[in-house]
Design a protein around this nucleic acid. Structure first.
Lengths: 117, 117
DNA sequence: AGTATACGTGAGCTATTGCTAACGTGTCAA
DNA sequence: TTGACACGTTAGCAATAGCTCACGTATACT
């Protein structure tokens, strides 16, 4: 069942796990696009792309707007913040490691200095 | 087959797609840990955790060091930069949207000002 | 009206994923 | 040495993912 509320009901990490879905998102960076236009670069059927778009809709990463008989898909990247925040933890961790390395190197330099005297 | 070189041979996006694997990484933020210690909070078998750790190894997100009969797994988060860079595109896109909105609002304000005179 | 286009959806199939259970190997302890 | 422990690996199974094909529906064109 597809969502009727504004709520996201599929895991956003799983949504970006598939390379085709990531490439769809990358393409949408250039602007809104229809399904057939999006399907063109891929060697899978338009139906498959449509299903991928359904998953991206469920995860809230894209939205759709009907314009005549064409469905224009639009990037809605604010939900990627969840991933950015998750990764942020690790950048913090990485920074701590660098700081520790820096302290270590400083300490070694201080020891070298002391040995010289 | 598992890697023998330092090369990453599995998709890092797929590696972090599974909630259990993300929780393993989150746990490793607190420091190196053995397999049984990592398995404790989960309701799946130690074997399953071991297989998840294998995938995380393949993606280069963790490394392992044998200490006696215990295998200590260690966080190796530098590969997450690939994802951070990918997301960075969208933050840029989002910023552009905000700038455009700002310009639009400025324009509307200018029109208001003109109408008053 | 009839036809073509743009699209979603469902059935059905295959490949992959995630898991448990059972085993084998190396390490510590008595 | 014998047993317990920590772990990896494999087979085998169920569940899911991803795909194509066929269909139905809504819009546009003539």
């Amino acid at each position: 069942m597809r969502k009727t509320t504004g709520q996201v009901d599929t895991d956003i990490f799983a949504a970006i796990a598939h390379p085709v879905r990531r490439q769809i998102l990358d393409t949408l960076l250039q602007g809104d696009m229809t399904v057939t236009a999006l399907s063109a670069p891929f060697d899978v059927s338009r139906s498959a792309i449509s299903q991928h778009l359904g998953i991206l809709m469920d995860s809230g990463l894209v939205s759709m707007e009907k314009r005549g008989r064409e469905h224009y898909y639009q990037l809605r990247p604010d939900n990627l913040n969840e991933i950015a925040r998750w990764i942020g933890q690790y950048e913090h961790f990485w920074q701590q490691k660098l700081d520790a390395l820096g302290d270590y190197l400083d300490e070694m330099a201080a020891q070298d200095e002391q040995e010289k005297s």
